[in-house]
């Protein structure tokens, strides 16, 4: 474990908690893409099946359970509890255009053709594009609540920190996972546009305007 991976995990946890609390406190999921949250729940489900097969550390197990729990809780709040506030008219990204190619790629490009490894690879590829419905929704509505932009900032920061973690592990431990690195680079690049706006817009006004 190194400081970059730890900070990355905490940033990821912060993002997940920020979103869950935002929906719970405001009792509204306006401006939130339910589709992205479903994709994240799918990412965690397919990646953390090894909870049932191997124990790595208390930290590892605890975080996985928290991630899965919060992901499903968020999906529940969006599609069940606060369904009335779900903005389905703007959450129209065709997720099948993500899931199908990612599923096919996971079969073609993986480290090992075993069910667990293919599901892990699927989750890595899916995570890199899972935020697209949310970014698409924001571009359609033309704005995002400040708290949502903090959520996106920490979510984007987490994988950027993981990229540094992978450089660190390659240099100090000789570890190298090409699939995770390439997907992580793609994932982080998708946030670049948002990062630019997040930083340049600062805290001006209550809503951030993102160009379409």
């Amino acid at each position: 474990m190194n400081i970059f991976r730890l900070t990355g995990d905490l940033s990821h946890l912060a993002a997940i908690i920020i979103l869950l609390l935002k929906i719970w406190k405001t009792r509204s999921c306006a401006g939130i893409s339910g589709k992205s949250q479903v994709l994240f729940a799918l990412v965690f489900t397919t990646r953390y099946l090894d909870l049932l097969t191997s124990f790595i550390s208390l930290y590892n197990t605890t975080m996985k359970i928290i991630y899965i729990g919060c992901a499903y809780a968020t999906v529940y709040l969006i599609y069940m509890k606060f369904k009335a506030t779900y903005d389905g008219n703007h959450d129209t990204f065709r997720v099948e255009f993500l899931v199908v190619p990612v599923g096919g790629l996971a079969f073609l490009v993986n480290h090992d053709f075993s069910p667990l490894e293919i599901l892990w690879t699927f989750s890595i590829y899916l995570e890199s594009v899972a935020i697209l419905p949310q970014l698409f929704m924001i571009s359609k509505t033309g704005e995002a609540e400040t708290i949502t932009t903090h959520y996106l900032f920490f979510l984007g920061l987490y994988r950027a920190l993981y990229l540094i973690n992978w450089i660190w592990r390659f240099y100090f431990e000789g570890f190298f996972d090409m699939i995770a690195i390439v997907a992580g680079v793609v994932q982080t690049i998708l946030y670049c546009d948002f990062f630019y706006l997040y930083v340049t817009k600062g805290e001006s006004g209550s809503n951030k305007i993102n160009p379409a």
């Binding site: 590892n60 975080m63 991630y67 480290h111 592990r169 190298f176 996972d177 995770a180």
Partner: peptide
């Protein structure tokens, strides 16, 4: 060669 790390990352 690409050394596969054990799945110790989240």
């Amino acid at each position: 060669i690409l050394k596969k790390k054990k799945k110790d990352e989240l």
